[in-house]
C-alpha cells in the first residue's frame, strides 16, 4: 500500500481515485496507518481504507479466501462508466508493481479518448506508437510494430 501511496500524486494527475480493502476493521486500519504506513510514506495513506470483515466485497470480486478469512491480492481498474477494464489477482507472498497498473491506466485512457480507434500493442509504454485497427492493418502489423 505504501508503494501505491508513493505514486498517489501521479494517479491523481491521471484522475484516478484509489480504494483499498481488507478484512481488517477500520480500527485496525487506523492503527496501521498511524503506526506504520505513515512512517513509510510522505503523508500517510490519502485514500479511504475499506473494511470488508465479512468478505462480501471480496466474494463478488472473486478474491475472498474463505479457508483463511482474508482477501487475496486483487487489483481492479474501473473506468468512468463503472466497467472493469483490467484485473490482476495474486496469492499473498508476492507484492504488486504499481508501475504496471499506471502503465495500463495510461493505455486504457488513451484507448478511451480515441473512442476505440487506437489500440496499444504488447509492450506499449506511454509515448510509444499505437495501432490503428482496420482493414489496412490486417497482415501488416509487422510493418508498424516489432517485438523488442
Amino acid at each position: 500500500m505504501s508503494a501505491v501511496a508513493g505514486r498517489f500524486d501521479e494517479l491523481q494527475k491521471l484522475g484516478v481515485e484509489v480504494l483499498s480493502a481488507s478484512t481488517d476493521s477500520v480500527f485496525v486500519h487506523k492503527m496501521w496507518e498511524e503506526h506504520e504506513l505513515s512512517k513509510m510514506t510522505k503523508s500517510g495513506i490519502p485514500w479511504p481504507m475499506l473494511s470488508d470483515g465479512a468478505g462480501n466485497l471480496g466474494k463478488v470480486y472473486g478474491v475472498y479466501d474463505e479457508n483463511n478469512g482474508i482477501n487475496i491480492r486483487g487489483r481492479f481498474l474501473i473506468d468512468p462508466d463503472g466497467v472493469v477494464q483490467a484485473m490482476e489477482v495474486m496469492t499473498p507472498p508476492v507484492g504488486r508493481k504499481i508501475g504496471e497498473a499506471i502503465r495500463q491506466l495510461h493505455a486504457f485512457q488513451l484507448v478511451r479518448k480515441s473512442k476505440g480507434t487506437e489500440a496499444c500493442p504488447a509492450e506499449w509504454e506511454p509515448g510509444k506508437p499505437t495501432l490503428k485497427p482496420g482493414p489496412d492493418l490486417v497482415g501488416n502489423v509487422w510493418k508498424v510494430w516489432q517485438p523488442e
Binding site: 480504494l19 480493502a21 481492479f76 474501473i78 463503472g82 497498473a101
Partner: peptide, 23 residues
Amino acid sequence: VKLSDYAGKWVLLCFYPGDFTFV
C-alpha cells in the same frame, strides 16, 4: 464509501490480505 459515488472517475481498487502483513 460507496463505489457508485465514484461514477465518472477512474478507480483503482486494491484488495490485500491484511494490515501489518509484510509484503
